[in-house]
Write a protein that binds this DNA or RNA. Structure first.
Lengths: 196, 196
DNA sequence: GACTTTTCTATCCACGTGGATAGTAATTAT
DNA sequence: ATAATTACTATCCACGTGGATAGAAAAGTC
């Protein structure tokens, strides 16, 4: 038919992920051009503008979080969940998270709730995480390894808020240690739920 | 000496509080003129521009939070703290919080950590809250009313993250009930710490 | 090689932004 | 009253933004 795009979709999205991740939605279209190799023209014609392109990027991020980052109920029990929270602020991961936070979380801040497309993705993020956590808690409850002082319902909501809160702490941090301490305390909380 | 300002400092700050609260730092200088009665000229000469004015407004917000909103260790025990968390999302308060969140929290999102003046105020907010919570927990620990499964250190960090996380949940909400449920679950957690 | 289709390059645009400035009006000290 | 001081009005400005558009260039089809 016609000429091929200089940069293909996948590498463009990968580069954009990097860019939006560090700068949020405020990254300018000029900078998107530089970093992704796309042109503002292509941005317009192929993705329907900056916002459409951002949505695609956010989708890619969520896919990745689902596959790689979130705790997996298949392999993860209550103690594993505690470790997972600690790993969020682990020395090898914190430099990255430290600077950029979580793209989905940042999007909650960048957009108000008037944007339906963003909303869908924010909800997907929250739902995904809560489901994972709840599955782990339900297993622990039926195992008898969950202390009976707190219902899986309450516990899973608390853990969602704790993940979000940890992200805020990371974003608000001045001292690098703070986030790690908070993650440790969250882990300690989860471990206190392990019924012996 | 000279002419008086049409709008005085206090009412201007009060109006600005309202504006920044609902729109964040993105509120335009034009809108600040409308809502506060100040002129862009006065904004410049008397406050050093938009940012200086915003900082003054944020200070006023923090003062208010400290005096009126935060839980008071003098009158508040562990059970009271649980109630306080629930009250954050209470029916009479949630419509407000729902729409506007917390100005200090929003500022964490609006600015990066490169801004020292904002940082100072964000830190003040976090420190104020953590100190209040820690005082309550320390009292409970020495009372013997705090369950020994979690240290006051860990518990206070967890509660800071929970407050922040609750704010995110409120901001990200689609359904109005969600925030209330989360607040209730947090309250349930705190109550589970009450040693009987 | 001619035609078609799509992307690329290079501008151009309207808009909103925070801020600057010059001239005018109001208020107070003398 | 007059002078001094401050705030107000009304523009003006430079800048960055996302987006639009016209023409050139490249890659297919025939």
């Amino acid at each position: 038919m016609a000429r091929k795009r200089k940069a293909d979709h996948d590498t463009a999205i990968a580069a954009a992920l990097d860019l939006f991740w560090s700068q949020g939605y405020d990254a300018s279209t000029r900078e998107i051009e530089e970093k992704t190799g796309l042109t503002r023209f292509t941005l317009q014609t192929a993705y329907g503008g900056k916002e459409g392109f951002f949505l695609d990027t956010l989708d890619a991020y969520l896919d990745r979080a689902e596959q790689l980052h979130f705790p997996d109920p298949e392999t993860c029990d209550l103690a594993g969940l505690a470790d997972w929270f600690e790993s969020v602020a682990a020395p090898d991961r914190i430099p990255l998270i430290d600077q950029r936070g979580c793209l989905a979380f940042n999007s909650i801040a960048d957009f108000d709730r008037g944007n339906a497309e963003i909303n869908k993705r924010v909800q997907r993020y929250l739902r995904m995480f809560e489901e994972r956590v709840r599955a782990i808690l339900d297993q622990a409850a039926s195992n008898g390894t969950l202390t009976p002082t707190l219902s899986p319902n309450d516990a899973s909501r608390v853990l969602v808020d704790l993940l979000l809160g940890l992200h805020v702490t990371i974003k608000a941090r001045v001292d690098d240690d703070v986030a790690r301490q908070h993650a440790k305390s969250i882990a300690a909380l989860v471990r206190s739920w392990v019924h012996t």
